[in-house]
Nucleic acid binder design. Sequence first.
DNA 1: TCAGAGTCAATACC
DNA 2: GGTATTGACTCTGA
Length: 356
Amino acid sequence: MQPWAQRRTRAKRTHPAQLSTKQRSSSLKPASEDPSGGESQPGTPLPVPGHSGLSIQEMVAMSVELDTYAITKKVKEVLTDNNLGQRLFGEDYPGPKPWHKLSLKGREPFVRMQLWIQDPHSVEKLMDMKRLEKKAYMKRRLSSLSDSHPVDVGLVGQDYMQGSQSPVHQHLKKARVVLGPEEKEALKRAYQQKPYPSPKTIEELASQLNLKTSTVINWFHNYRSRIRRELFIEEIQAAGGLVGHGSEGGSPSLRGSKSGEGDSCDGTESEGTVETRQGLGMGLEDHRGACKDDMEVDLTEASSSGSASSTNIPASGPARNPRDNNLRKKKAANLNNIIHRLEKAASKEDPSEWEF
DNA sequence: TCAGAGTCAATACC
DNA sequence: GGTATTGACTCTGA
């Protein structure tokens, strides 16, 4: 990410195609054309290289002082307004420094950006690039799919990509993987022990469960995301409803946690977690150290029931039903993982050693 | 390269 | 048929 870039909320992201005609007409062009561009308007307009016959280098040498901050800000605005990624925009632009501190070489990107801002077709060009990239991606997927599925075996269900209406695409439909209850349970147990498994663990999980590694990766991504969302919703509800709900006398995790115990990442390691090696016969190991390394992951039922009871946050409790109880276990594992990382970070004096 | 956020769409369930 | 669940994906930032 470039220094001038900021996070933006995807929910608010609006594709130009979704804008009104008026909005489109104002957004599908560089911001410099916007008469209200006012205060952040970058400095003196530059001659366009193609039109002026000057090279970038010549322009750099000739150009008057540019407001580097305003230019980078303006570029970012235009990209954001038009739903264009910075990766597309370009190369590795340096963080804005005052013009007089920049070398000729250092000034060059800003001259380029200035030109880009001035170019009325800059956004369209980027949009075209975006389309081409998407096309290329489709092509790659298409060839990889036809490699793995010479015939239409397994290609049922949805159109792989939305909007792909060509006959070829209609044929290339990807089967949805539906995980069985045992697989899900195993993955959940693995998650309870280690919400962030290493590639090695993922591979082992995949082979043990007879799944693709990408499926396992996706599952962990989705599961973390959904657990987090549930937690968030729950917290919102708790904050808006019962004050102090669920944490009477302070957080149980903070009261009961002790990072030294078991040296587990999520605090779920307990007796029976490592020792038991049955069921799926998991013996997943990775000794790359500390929290980021892989603890052995046990997928057996025994450890699953045991892990919850040993979490820093009591995962079992007066849940209304088994499903609630499961949810509590999941959330406890997630929270304990976060807590453990924070504690670990806090115990290190040198901030450079902090791991998050 | 990885993880988070958001989204799509197949599937399951009522 | 409507809704919920969930695997897969894109885009983005770090």
